[in-house]
Design a protein around this nucleic acid. Structure first.
Lengths: 141, 141
DNA sequence: CTGCATCCCTGATGATACTG
DNA sequence: CAGTATCATCAGGGATGCAG
């Protein structure tokens, strides 16, 4: 886990990206691809979506994101925290209590993501219809 | 590859989903999760994004989505076509020519996805700064 | 050019057990 | 409760070869 100095402070060029100030996800190796991946991957998207509803403790989140394992939730939260999307607040109590919430940046991203999720959920009947049609054509014909 | 009859035509309940008319991605097994996955996964998101610029042939797409292999692009296009997001038009010519384009539904989804991608690209400096900060705290102590 | 099939490897994911 | 560590598994993904 090497810590490479990155062009964070100013608008310097990023390794693998087309040019200064540009973070094109379509370009290989561009760090924006990795960030997008954290946001959109299986558990990242659901975790961000869940946190849009408020602040939650670890196990509360686990219950909200159905099917996520302990390990994957921890891993997902770490990645999102590192990317500055999630804020982690641990209290030194017994039993321990840790709260997770979106940062302002995380909130922006999660809301944009939410719009996409809502759209997909809303259009599911169309998607399912398309699948039936596709499957019918690719078995009979 | 079994073809299960799905509730596509009307607003009937979907297997694994909370109730009729609802396609909650947070629920296990809900088909909306699978659809969202096709849209947001590594190559799906980039392919949809690329098709937002117009109609392309297979190898044109391959060049646009840097780093995608033949296999994965084909697989991705199939999934998106089956979900009704991408339209495939094959011409019986020699050499063969196949054009891929977004369907109206695919266009809606891709545009919503684009907004998310644009946001992420735009905020990359913040993300990279957050990573530096996080890494600094988690090594020094 | 399009694109399917096959082999193979790595990384992602899950179940379980253990620690503070 | 909130994780971490370990091991087993499986899907994702790349390389190659072949067919229309």
């Amino acid at each position: 886990m090497a810590i490479e100095s990155s062009a964070a402070t100013a608008g310097e060029s990023a390794p693998g990206c087309p040019d200064d100030l540009a973070y094109d996800v379509f370009a290989r190796e561009c760090p924006s691809r990795e960030a997008l991946k954290h946001i959109t991957d299986r558990w990242g998207s659901l975790t961000l979506g869940a946190l849009l509803d408020g602040t939650f403790r670890f196990n509360e989140l686990r219950r909200r994101v159905e099917g996520v394992s302990e390990k994957m939730l921890a891993q997902t939260l770490h990645a999102l925290e590192r990317d500055g999307l999630v804020h982690r607040e641990a209290q030194q109590s017994n039993p321990p209590r840790v709260d997770y919430a979106l940062t302002p940046l995380g909130n922006q991203v999660a809301r944009q993501l939410r719009l996409l999720i809502d759209l997909v959920e809303d259009r599911m009947p169309q998607v399912l219809a398309a699948r039936e049609h596709y499957d019918a054509r690719h078995t009979a014909g």
